[in-house]
Computed example of a mutant assay.
Amino acid sequence: MRIAVVGPMHPYRGGIAHFTEMTVQGLDERGHEMRPVSFARQYPEFLFPGKTQFEPDDEAPAIVRGAPRLLDPLNPLSWLRTAWQLREQRPEAVIFQYWMPFFAPAYGTVARILRWAGIPSLAVVHNALPHERHLGDAWLSRFFLAACEGHVVMSDAVANNLQSLRRPDAAFRRIEHPVYERFGEPVPRAKARAALDLPEDAPVMLFFGFVREYKGLHVLLKALPDVLEALPDPHLVVAGEPYDDPARYRRLIREHGLDAHVHWYDDYVPSGEVPTYFCAADLVVQPYVSATQSGVAQIATHFERPMVVTDVGGLAETIPHEEAGFVVPAEDPEALASAIIRFFQEGWAGRLAEGVRERKHAQQPARLLEAIEELLPGSTE
């Protein structure tokens, strides 16, 4: 079929852009005629909390490199131009990547114009409602999501939020979040640790991704003193750009005497460097205060790294307790420390790694592509 996909793509950075590229490339490889459409502007600079919205490297599938950059969420004229150009291409369906109400007015307008032209819209819904809620979020999300003929979600938490925001007759698929394969093969642990100047035999934990209140780095830092008392020379690698004030985290590091044990690489990690961080770690820790799902968990799964996650959103669905990792209560430093200590002292690495490998097999990108195909017009599913 001729399919358009709307969402951020190269040169935009981050997990949603990577997911959009994976979707376009995967459907192309399955024989569909793809029409990717990216953003002319994703966020205005004053609203973006990071240093840059763009990838520092040039690693992206060839099919998305020339994608027209049309949609500006703050420019209604661009919404009309995008809808017009999509209508002129006559796709049999348009797939939107949705994760934030900020994009709902633009998306909802385009989807409604396409609907009037007889072109159905589908949504891959990463978040039906945002982690940090604001007045009007539900109304905005409903404006877009109710204009779609079908939805794909990747956690029960998102599915539950979506129920009141979509049309009752809209088609629906719930799948496991696919692993990210774009980051390539693992590198030897010794090489990865040498690159990060880490001891070869020390316990190493990884906190990966941008740093924001709901990601819970502050909870992990409060848990580390108990870990230091129980384990010989543990190290925490924090690989991520701060999206809120880094001073509070630096203060916790100083107050708890963690300077020699915390290594913070406070910048966006380019795709080519991602394997180094995950392969240097024994354990990936996600101490989220709130969540729906996590792309970081899918990168960890790709590199077959066990995880400790908190029981929020869909994280426990992704990482079954004592199968692929440990699940602990949110905002509980003592429980988090206990799980980390247990992982290293009781020798769980091998058992949990095997469980992660089983999850990896179940979370291949093909299921996402199949779910989309099942929602396409004329599908017999």
Rank of each mutant, 00 (worst) to 15 (best):
V5H: 04
E21S: 09
G31I: 09
M34N: 06
P36D: 06
F39Y: 13
A40L: 14
R41P: 08
E45D: 15
F46Y: 15
D58Y: 11
P73V: 01
N75F: 05
L77W: 14
R81W: 12
T82F: 01
L86V: 03
R87S: 13
F96V: 07
P101D: 04
F103Q: 01
A106Y: 06
R115H: 14
A123K: 00
V124A: 09
V125F: 02
V125E: 01
E132F: 09
R133T: 13
W139C: 11
L145T: 03
G150M: 06
S155T: 11
A157Q: 05
N160L: 12
R167G: 14
E176T: 09
P178G: 10
R182Y: 07
G184K: 10
K191F: 13
A194N: 14
P199Q: 10
P203C: 06
F207M: 09
F210P: 10
F210M: 11
F210K: 12
R212C: 08
L220F: 06
L220M: 09
L221S: 04
L221N: 04
A223L: 03
P225L: 11
V227I: 10
E229F: 12
D233A: 13
V238A: 02
A239Q: 11
E241N: 02
R248K: 14
H256A: 15
T276E: 12
F278D: 00
F278G: 00
L283I: 06
V284L: 07
Q286H: 05
G295P: 08
A297E: 07
I299C: 04
A300G: 10
H302R: 14
P306Q: 08
V308I: 10
T310C: 02
V312E: 00
I319P: 01
A339Q: 01
A339F: 00
G347K: 11
A349C: 13
A349N: 14
L369H: 13
I372L: 15
E373D: 03
L375H: 05
L375V: 08
P377H: 11
S379L: 02
